[in-house]
Simulated assay, not measured.
Amino acid sequence: MYKSLMDSLRIQRRVIWALMMREVITRFGRENLGVLWLIAEPMMFTLGVTALWTSAGMNHGSSLPIVAFAITGYSSVLLWRNAVNRCNSGIQSNASLLYHRNVRVIDVFVTRVSLEMAGATASFIILATFFSAIGWIAPPEDPLLVVAGWLMLAWFGAALAMVIGAGTAYSEIVDRLWHPASYLLFPLSGAAFMVDWLPASLQKVVLILPMVHGVELVREGYFGATVRTHHDMAYMATINLVLTLLGLFLVRDAGKRVGSR
């Protein structure tokens, strides 16, 4: 039984690796920066927002450094949003591969989520390290809290990616609805504000969104006692768990639907 399990894991590893290589070559090619675009894209977006905020003198009515505020906010959003966006078209663009015996829908999603999250994480680390080295921002007050918040956001992104990605196997309406929904969620995600800056009535509304709790925890770890944060990790973990279970169920059923076509 142990040997059979190890054989299955080796096959799974080869499948995931092959899908990653195919995804990287298809998206980025073999020339210019190649796979480095996976890191460069989120870095360029975050730097663009940071430059705009800095040039406009937008400090959001607080003493927080704009650069650190933008990096912690927009990097966190890109972590979960990019993963969902890539899985949204995962089944359609890999439909031919799903007829291979060892390739499953879950493999496609794991591949895409892993690549997007690796790129967003590397972008965040590089930007934070660089700006800390040149003295523009201070290092995080509590790196463990930053990591905890980051992992919770990654879990949320992976779970939501499975739900949305598998949902496209049922109807293309899911794909059409997600795009406007992602734009609406972006300004509500906590990237551009702290919950404490909002009126009490609005705080209760935005805290319904689980990703806001994760961003608040990241910023608590980064800025420490200089900010007052509002988060409930038990609530976020519960939502993440529900999304994960729903996502796994939908992924399994989506695989059956694809295989029966």
Rank of each mutant, 00 (worst) to 15 (best):
R13V: 02
R13Q: 02
V24D: 09
V24T: 13
G29N: 06
E31A: 10
V35T: 09
F45I: 07
G48L: 13
G48W: 14
L52I: 15
A56H: 02
G57F: 01
G57E: 11
S62N: 10
S63Q: 14
A83S: 15
N88P: 01
S89E: 13
Q92M: 12
S96C: 04
L98Y: 00
D107C: 01
R112Y: 07
A120Q: 15
A120C: 14
T121G: 15
T121N: 12
A122D: 08
S123W: 09
I125H: 03
F131E: 15
I134F: 13
G135S: 08
P139R: 12
P140K: 11
P140H: 12
P140L: 14
D142V: 05
L144N: 01
V146F: 04
A148T: 12
G157V: 10
M162I: 00
G167E: 05
T168Q: 15
L177K: 11
P187S: 03
F193R: 08
V195G: 01
D196I: 10
P210Q: 01
L217P: 07
T226M: 07
R228Y: 10
R228F: 11
I239E: 01
L241G: 15
V242I: 15
L250F: 09
G255R: 06
K256L: 15
G259M: 00
R261L: 11
